[in-house]
């Protein structure tokens, strides 16, 4: 059993998986990329812009890891800096202004741990996304396509619907990090992976996600077509929700309520 969860972690991290840009290119039409947070820099670890879905404009944002060694270096291995989260927020507020639904693709080991990231307020950048996303007046769907690394992933996942690829993982900490903190032994990552309940099935049973996306034909036309169909249908449902923000509040408000003792 413990190997199964850790195998998922390895699969989620595999460089053979489609990355954020692959989803954007194959699901949407006419993607136009926008750069920069207007405050400090453009973060290549997060890609965002507008595109067409079923003939309607949407805002798409993706954490991009890159495929080749060169791309991965350029993308900082999909570890965003504060300016990446601020760019994402800028584009989300823009989407809200123009009434466009927002779709996020998430794939990160976590927000970047660096000196500059701390100096520029990594924690503040994530926190601001959490508060701002909680009241966006347009539908938000977030799809975890690979690694869902803690706050760095959540910063794009305060959504009306959160979906996960079958072999994506979503966790509060990496299994290695957890094992080294709790048991002073990174080799116990398998046990940690199992204990953290980080698979898509676990996330669904904890009420953290709504849907698990099959990886049948992953990377093929059929795979992307299926996701496109689901997105179109769900956006239609959410667009007709007259209390979208209230329901989003309740969605997160209820998580963990039954996980505590009330005396």
């Amino acid at each position: 059993m413990s190997e199964a969860a850790y195998d998922r972690v390895k699969l989620a991290r595999s460089s053979n998986r489609p990355t954020g840009l692959d989803y954007i290119k194959n699901i949407f039409r006419g993607f136009i990329e926008f750069h920069g947070d207007r405050r400090y820099a453009d973060d290549p670890a997060i890609v965002g812009g507008i595109a067409s879905l079923n003939g309607s404009p949407v805002t798409v944002i993706a954490i991009e890891k890159g495929h080749t060694a060169k791309e991965r270096t350029l993308r900082n291995f999909g570890a965003p800096n504060p300016e990446g989260y601020r760019k994402a927020l800028r584009l989300m507020k823009q989407a809200e202004k123009f009434g466009r639904p927002i779709i996020c693709f998430i794939d990160t080991s976590g927000a970047y741990c660096g000196i500059g990231a701390e100096e520029r307020g990594q924690g503040q950048a994530i926190a601001e996304n959490l508060t701002e996303m909680s009241t966006l007046c347009v539908p938000v769907i977030s799809v975890l396509i690979g690694e869902g690394g803690s706050g760095g992933a959540l910063a794009l996942a305060v959504a009306d619907r959160v979906w996960m690829l079958q072999n994506a993982v979503y966790s509060v900490i990496s299994p290695e990090g957890c094992a080294s903190i709790l048991w002073k032994d990174a080799a116990k990552a398998q046990t940690a992976a199992e204990s953290l309940k980080l698979t898509a099935e676990d996330a669904k049973s904890l009420g953290v996600i709504e849907r698990i996306l099959s990886e049948k034909d992953i990377g093929q036309k059929e795979f992307y077509d299926r996701i496109r169909t689901l997105l179109i249908r769900e956006i239609d449902v959410l667009t007709n929700d007259l209390d979208l923000v209230g329901h989003r509040y309740d969605r997160f408000r209820n998580i963990g309520v039954s996980a505590v003792i009330k005396e």
């Binding site: 959490l130 966790s171 509060v172 676990d202 997160f252 998580i255 963990g256």
Partner: peptide, 16 residues
């Protein structure tokens, strides 16, 4: 960490 994803979600919940 001992409450896994449920702990992570508290960040979104408190922020909202």
């Amino acid at each position: 960490m001992q409450e896994g994803l449920l702990s992570l979600m508290q960040m979104a919940k408190t922020s909202a």
